[in-house]
Amino acid sequence: MTPATTSRYSFQYRARSAYLFLLVPLVLFTLFRNLPLLVAFIISLMDWDIVGSAKWVGFKHYLDLLKDHNFRTAFWNTIFFTVGTVPAALAGGLFFAMVIEARFIKFRAGFRTLFFLPVVSSMVAIATVWNWIYNPLFGILNQLTQQMGLGRFGWIADDRMALVSIMIVAIWKTIGYNMIIYMAGLNGIPQVYYEAAAIDGATRWQSFRHVTWPMLRPVTFFLVVMGIINSFQVFDLVYVLTSGAMKDSTNVLVFYLYHKAFAEMNLGYASAIGYYIFILILGVTLVQFWSNRRKEG
């Protein structure tokens, strides 16, 4: 609009400003996000204990891992953790979201706050508190179960129950998050659908089955993907509840990575574990991306 006298309106000037604004983020992201991903791959092809010199071994670690008993245990524990926590936290979140969004509910904000407290709380503090709750001798939970006539349990101390005990905490912590997202999803469903269903004489269950559930499909899908990704990365909870000790009963992928890297200083091997985790998560993300595309296209 103005002649070229004011170069500040020119494309070059604008582009230069854009690059200047991006400079700091670019440097930081490159150094601390993107470059490390590349470095991790290179290290995963080497044998290295940080003090000695690195030795090139190619894909040896990736193949060794497939035969590694601990890795397999960690993998299946992670899968078990995911399969056990994601659906339960999803069902819990949806259930409470539907109850809290009922038209007649008062103090909605207050209830929402209560359910959201565990979500914002740090995993370390939460795990510490549950560690005390789970204490086999003096923990409040065993006193409760004993009073109910169920007897006492070992919880974390019992190898057969340890992982399930950890999963209970994870579910307890995630329900509020799922609930909030589901509440937003429920609010997005136009009321006319329910009115139409009511005119057709639909029962509560039928209007849930044919209106609510299908309308919430994208939300559910998102929460499943997020749940899987987060479950694959579980660490803090396991680390605190097991006092940092690696056991078959509670070993998970990230814990094994941490153990190999910083307890055994086997950086190459640990980086290969990291890449397996990365590939697993990338796979889940791509499935999501692909199915979103398909829905839109």
Binding site: F32, A40, F232, L257, A261, A270, I277, I281
Partner: peptide, 10 residues
């Protein structure tokens, strides 16, 4: 899409 843990060692 990059899990934090993968970049831990680098």
């Amino acid at each position: 899409m990059i899990p934090y843990q993968v970049t831990l060692i680098p």
